[in-house]
Amino acid sequence: MKNPYLRAVWAVFRKDLAAEFRSRELIPAMLVFAVLVVLIFYFALELDVKARTAITAGALWVTFSFAGTLGLNRTMSAEKDQGCLDGLLLAPLDRSAIYFGKFFSNLAFMLIVEVIVIPAYSLLYNINLFNRGLLLVTLLGSVGYVAVGVLLASMSVQTRTRDVLLPVLLFPLVLPVIVAAVKASGGFLAADAFTEISPWLNLLLVYDIIFLAAAFMVFDYVVEE
């Protein structure tokens, strides 16, 4: 890759994936957590088939959000613990390249978990989730979630209460993504008309673009003392 900026983004992404596939700390933890949440919903709503069908979209996004927070917290604290965040910040490049490297690696972790959780959920609840619309919503929702999450995790990792602080900061800010993703997912599962779903898809798309652009502009200030 000739462009130094893209080369740095790729280097951070590749490094995160290589470290994860060697240590196997993050994805298994996210996965176990996600499957447990799905199982808890399953047993809690076992007797009520109608309710189970109605809450599918909500249950899925609660699962993704909780598992995603776990991943975001871990991936940034791993950088902080060995002082590696300083190592990244010492590199002579536009620091937003670090943000985008982290964004893509966290997105990859979240998508891997989702690719496993969606079939598991389909099997348990006997609902067909292999719907192109739902998969598009999952992608757009994950992009928005991770875009905000990486930015906030970079801030919260500098504090002593980082494990508690990240969800407290993240969930209010990411609420529009969750609401839009739940509404759009529910719409696709209920086979609603596309005109009813498209406002939610537009909201997801705009949110993703705004927060990626905002992170590109402010990441340098967020990570500097």
Binding site: A8, A11, A18, A19, R22, S23, Q82, L88, A91
Partner: peptide, 18 residues
Amino acid sequence: LLYGDLTAAENLAFYADL
């Protein structure tokens, strides 16, 4: 400022990219 789950050469290659 090094990654424990990467080898010595991988760590240096990562910084060389940066």
